[in-house]
């Protein structure tokens, strides 16, 4: 057999293997987990980020372009969450299958009633379309899973039953977890906390918690001592005992916790690639942390 035939056979084999699965690319590990659960063995899923990033300053890597070039389906959060890196990659990738408007492009936020930004108009770094952190609302993510199932079905109608069955299984799993989370947080209903950046509104709304205010005076602007002291005064009056933000802001979180004689929680607002239990495991960890840290101090960290 000459080399030409061998190459042809390898190419044919490669094409055959490729035809067997849909290449799904997501912008976050949360979305990747949902796509895996709905798509099952019919998809191979890759997340462009690992979960610890600030999604406004993701490192653009050459492999991202390669993944987008091959993708059959792209799932993004939307609401300008990925505006600083995804549009440029999409333009360069030149993949018609995942062009906005095609079945292969999913803007997850269209399945969600976006929460208005309370910091809108206060300064720079705005999301005029709404708060993009809806992944912290499990009910919203249930709808995103429905949307993913719908698009996978459009791309691969022969596997409709599988996607429907996986969607139902995920919905049932989500309901079970939701019931458990609501039960665990029920005793803390109305509890107040402080966030660093406008992030946790969806979570607070879903589980009956209250956000007193934000450490950032304006989005993307680091707090000064006066802002910290003023917020701490309000927090003491309101009885807020928890400060939540991303790990890079740990120092400010701890400082604020000290000022209000409370606790701080440094946590990324999305799951990590290696998160045990995927998205539901992440939300489980979030609920556990909130329950532990909102409880009276004797039993907390």
């Amino acid at each position: 057999m000459n080399h030409g035939k061998i190459i042809f056979l390898l190419l044919a084999l490669s094409a055959l293997l490729r035809a067997q699965t849909l290449e799904v690319v997501t912008t976050t590990p949360d979305l990747a987990d949902l796509a895996r659960r709905i798509g099952g063995k019919t998809v191979t899923v890759e997340s462009l980020t690992r979960g610890g990033e600030d999604l406004h300053q993701v490192n653009i890597r050459p492999s991202m372009l390669a993944r987008l070039r091959e993708a059959d389906l792209l799932v993004e959060m939307g609401l300008d969450m990925e505006h600083a890196w995804l549009p440029a990659l999409l333009k360069s990738a030149r993949n018609d299958r995942i062009t906005p408007g095609r079945d292969g492009f999913v803007n997850a936020s269209v399945a969600v009633k976006a929460r208005a930004n309370e910091d809108q108009g206060k300064g720079v770094h705005q999301h005029p379309l709404g708060n993009p952190h809806f992944n912290l609302d499990p009910v919203a993510m249930g709808r995103v899973a429905d949307l993913i199932a719908e698009r996978l079905t459009a791309l691969r109608p022969a596997d409709r039953e599988l996607y429907e069955s996986n969607r139902k299984a995920f919905a049932a799993d989500l309901d079970d977890h939701l019931k458990s989370w609501r039960d665990r947080l029920a005793t803390l209903e109305g509890a107040t906390f402080i966030e660093y950046h406008e992030t946790w509104g969806y979570f607070a709304d879903r589980f009956g918690l209250k956000i007193l205010g934000r450490i950032e005076p304006r989005p993307g602007v680091a707090p000064g001592p006066r802002q910290m002291a003023s917020l701490a005064g309000d927090a003491r009056k309101a009885g807020a005992k928890l400060v939540v933000g991303r790990p890079p802001h740990r120092q400010d979180l701890e400082k604020m916790a000290e000022l209000i004689e409370g606790r701080s929680l440094a946590i990324d607002p999305m799951s990590r690639l290696d998160e045990e239990g995927g998205y539901l495991g992440f939300m489980d960890r979030v609920v556990t942390d909130f329950v532990d840290l909102l409880k009276p101090k004797a039993s907390g960290r």
Binding site: T49, G52, E53, D54, Q57, V58, N59, R246, P247, P248, D268
Partner: peptide
Amino acid sequence: YRNIDPSDG
């Protein structure tokens, strides 16, 4: 050469 931690820049 570029080596940036995307969690905090």
